[in-house]
């Protein structure tokens, strides 16, 4: 028997920039769990990692791009979707994934989400929704549930809350799902499925923020929130997205809500230009001009 001590390793280490560990996320935070799911989804689908680009905005989830060993971009607050749009349209052969938080994607970046979904840009958008701006200290976001305390809503939130799957579907997304960071297997499976599809795909992952959201709302630690996610999540794949809005500590509808095939922006562009320009048009498959 070998006396050499085996160091425990994480099976997804080859996908991580280990030289950047430890990461910045707090104990009990769910973002790292979702990254684990994503790495497994990439492995399970045998996605060509050299042809996969990851784009993040700013915030705690915005740091994901910095930890995955892919061509990865940490951009500006709210703008990962237009950056990703540029990548995908210039080189449609790339798999382009946007990975960011609820504040980044739906407050400052909300307009870009709407239009990328409307155009059916062929990208996967993963939103870790922890109901708060973690990086800046726990302020109100468009997804903070009614009555929840935030540092900028010290008397409790009185704004209406965004129902993200409903928004995504109504803007034209091809694939819409929601899971939580408790549901690691389901999340990884859902990500794998979405990686294999075309069009604008959106996955919301409800995730704990023990340091800033839970502490202020007296909801216990990371584990307590995991228990809440476990006990209150109800899978309804056929749910109408209009019915899946979230309340403070209420039931969470999870599952795959939308899965539809629709022509992407590039499909539409190629079809239209072929129709109007005829033989003069050469199908666009990316920019080939030598630079």
């Amino acid at each position: 028997m070998s006396t050499e001590e085996k160091k425990p390793t994480n099976p997804i280490e080859p996908l991580l920039r280990m030289e950047r560990m430890p990461h910045i996320w707090c104990p009990g935070c769910g973002i790292g769990t979702t990254v684990n799911c994503f790495a497994r989804a990439l492995e399970d689908t045998k996605t060509d990692l050299d042809k996969t680009a990851l784009v993040s905005g700013i915030g705690c989830t915005g740091r994901v791009a910095g930890y995955l060993k892919l061509d990865s971009f940490h951009t500006t607050h709210g703008r990962p979707i237009p950056f990703a749009t540029g990548l995908k349209l210039a080189n449609p052969k790339l798999n382009v994934v946007v990975y960011s938080g609820d504040g980044d994607l739906f407050a400052i970046g909300g307009n870009h989400f709407i239009h990328a979904a409307r155009r059916n840009i062929d990208i996967l958008v993963i939103c870790v929704n922890n109901y708060t701006y973690g990086m800046t200290g726990g302020q109100l976001t468009p997804t903070t549930p009614y009555s929840a305390i935030a540092s900028t809503a010290p008397y409790g939130n009185f704004e209406k809350t965004f129902n993200l799957p409903y928004l995504a579907e109504s803007c034209g997304a091809a694939f819409v799902a929601r899971w939580t960071s408790y549901h690691v297997r389901q999340t990884a499976k859902c990500m794998a499925e979405a990686l294999g599809k075309k069009g604008f795909r959106f996955i919301e992952i409800i995730s704990p923020c023990p340091t800033l959201y839970q502490r202020r709302n007296k909801l216990g630690d990371g584990l307590a929130f995991m228990k809440y996610l476990k006990e209150n999540s109800v899978r309804k794949d056929d749910a109408q997205t209009k019915d899946v809005g979230l309340d403070f500590q209420g039931e969470i509808t999870v599952g795959k809500f939308v899965d539809r095939e629709m022509p992407t922006f590039l499909d539409d562009m190629n079809r239209r230009l072929s129709e109007t320009m005829g033989d003069k048009y050469e199908k666009y498959e990316g920019i080939k001009t030598k630079i």
Binding site: V55, D71, F73, T75, T76, R79, P82, F83, A84, T85, G86, L87, K88, L89, A90, N91, L94, G286, I287, I291
Partner: peptide, 10 residues
């Protein structure tokens, strides 16, 4: 920022 996506895609 879309143009930066274009540039980094080549």
């Amino acid at each position: 920022i879309a143009i930066y996506g274009g540039v980094w895609a080549g």
